[in-house]
Design a protein around this nucleic acid. Sequence first.
DNA 1: TTGTATGCGTTATCAA
DNA 2: TTGATAACGCATACAA
Lengths: 340, 340
Amino acid sequence: MAVTIKDVAKVANVTPSTVSRVISNSPRISEKTKRKVRQAMEELGYLPNFKARSLANRSTQTIGLVMPNSTDKVFQNPFFPEVIRGISKIAHSMEYALHISTGETEEEIYEGLVRMVQSGRVDGVILLYSRINDNVMSFLEEKKFPYTIIGKPYLNSDGISHVDNDNFSAAKEVTKYLLKLGHKRIGFVAGSLNLMVTLERKRGYESALLDSDITINNDYIVHEEFLREGGQEAISELLSLKEPPTSLVVADDLMAFGMLNTLDEMGLRVPDDISIISFNNLLLSEVSRPPLTSVDINIYNLGLQSAKCLIEKIKQPDEPAKRIIIPYKVIERNSCKKLS
Amino acid sequence: MAVTIKDVAKVANVTPSTVSRVISNSPRISEKTKRKVRQAMEELGYLPNFKARSLANRSTQTIGLVMPNSTDKVFQNPFFPEVIRGISKIAHSMEYALHISTGETEEEIYEGLVRMVQSGRVDGVILLYSRINDNVMSFLEEKKFPYTIIGKPYLNSDGISHVDNDNFSAAKEVTKYLLKLGHKRIGFVAGSLNLMVTLERKRGYESALLDSDITINNDYIVHEEFLREGGQEAISELLSLKEPPTSLVVADDLMAFGMLNTLDEMGLRVPDDISIISFNNLLLSEVSRPPLTSVDINIYNLGLQSAKCLIEKIKQPDEPAKRIIIPYKVIERNSCKKLS
DNA sequence: TTGTATGCGTTATCAA
DNA sequence: TTGATAACGCATACAA
């Protein structure tokens, strides 16, 4: 059996309660006993038992992470390691641990979350995605359980603490960028329409076009998941139009990357035949051919802030919801070209 | 306060102990009371309190995951999401939760692990990497704490439960494959020499050469991390030799992918000017230009088996250590060419 | 088949 | 400034 608070008490010649007070560094204990007790702890290699502690404490010092469907392609996106890196940085410094929950279906994810919350495994939760009609969110909301969301909440975005980029503006900006380069036929390629990111970026794209009095052509908008087979068709279809787009706004580097391949197979060169601009600025966008012009959304910081925000929420549940917008930055590389 | 076992007991008109027995589905409780109790649980939406349960139980039903240095480039490798997907599949089905621990330095990782183990947060641990002289492993070993390792242990590999590929043979096989295509000047590109994977693959590479009476040329072996700036030089150096290699064994798709870019910049075409074969068979290798011939190491299964193995270990600590070798498979694509 | 009593390792309340 | 004692919510040995 591991060493307990009683053992320490015995060695230090005090009662367990005193040891407990030393652990929490209570000010009403003499420096002398503190030293004595600490030495005993050192000597025995004592570490407080987490289970007992959180039982008495009603706090677990752990944060739950809800990931999207693990069989989904987005799961493979380096976005997640990076955002977790940010979260973990803060968590670590605030002595919180990380508890991860995922599943193969939305049902599984939901049940996983419920168990994790109901059984008191975590003090708060970070949703690593935002989608519409998410029952995970409804549950948290109803339970009034502390949580933060990375992305823009579908509803009631003022009442829910979240960390996000201004994806609308970002998409609008890059679309304008293409317009300025002389492109008029601009396509939009993205993933699931259930995700708020997709919706926001699409809105931005459309808004830029409207501002330039260009009518939105639904043939130019593609929503396939197409890193694999399926999507290639959607893309080749897009490019086989009588008037194919001369440039594309792609909602993710990973997708953009898949496109490069598809385009290559079709004999189209980037940026000579077609320009591409994308999002996230993953390592990938740097080492691809050509290097991609991409919007850096500062993923690491997204994670950092979401953790900070959640921990504050846990400690002060009654504070009003916070919205934190992480600035983005367009990184110009060589995937866009002026239309002559 | 949430609903407890007492509430259920009251509603069902039994004592808490009876409820407890129903929870663990004890055979010595009548079907009738079981029904009665279960209905009460249902009614109240009761879920056992995790902290109390694991305190009384001395088990947490959670698995600790130790990741490598989060600032390291390998962290970005899609290997991790995929292996976690496998782990999580089993964990979920066996009612285990996942606890993740990482850090920015080896020191942090070590301390994180110690706390997680000592404070009793987890029942067992999976190391998601294997490197030489790992104090994390020494600690686990000394504590006789249940753990499994993904990769080959540096020492005492018979005494430590692990799940691995036969990386030696795999590397040997692909090197032979290149030899058979007529290549004699074959380079080897890999990451850190602290990682067992790297060492094993290198051994395989060398063994194949020796079998063909080709002397090992250290100029042909590169160990840089070179997805970013630094490494490109190492590569161009390699290719600027008087007698540059005509083909490369690259220890990871991500690296191979970075190479494609570097090579392109140098005006070298794959596979016409130089052949490349790599490992892991990530999505990436499929959508790169050209698609990469790569060794599928079945990452998902690696995760699956490691979790299975650990849970068995947790339940039967005295069983001898297991070694599980996951078969690999060479996936031929278009990055290798016969030397004419 | 069920109930009673006790313990799991802490923290917190109340005394001293 | 410290000690005794009762929670925290559940599991289990022992009784009945």
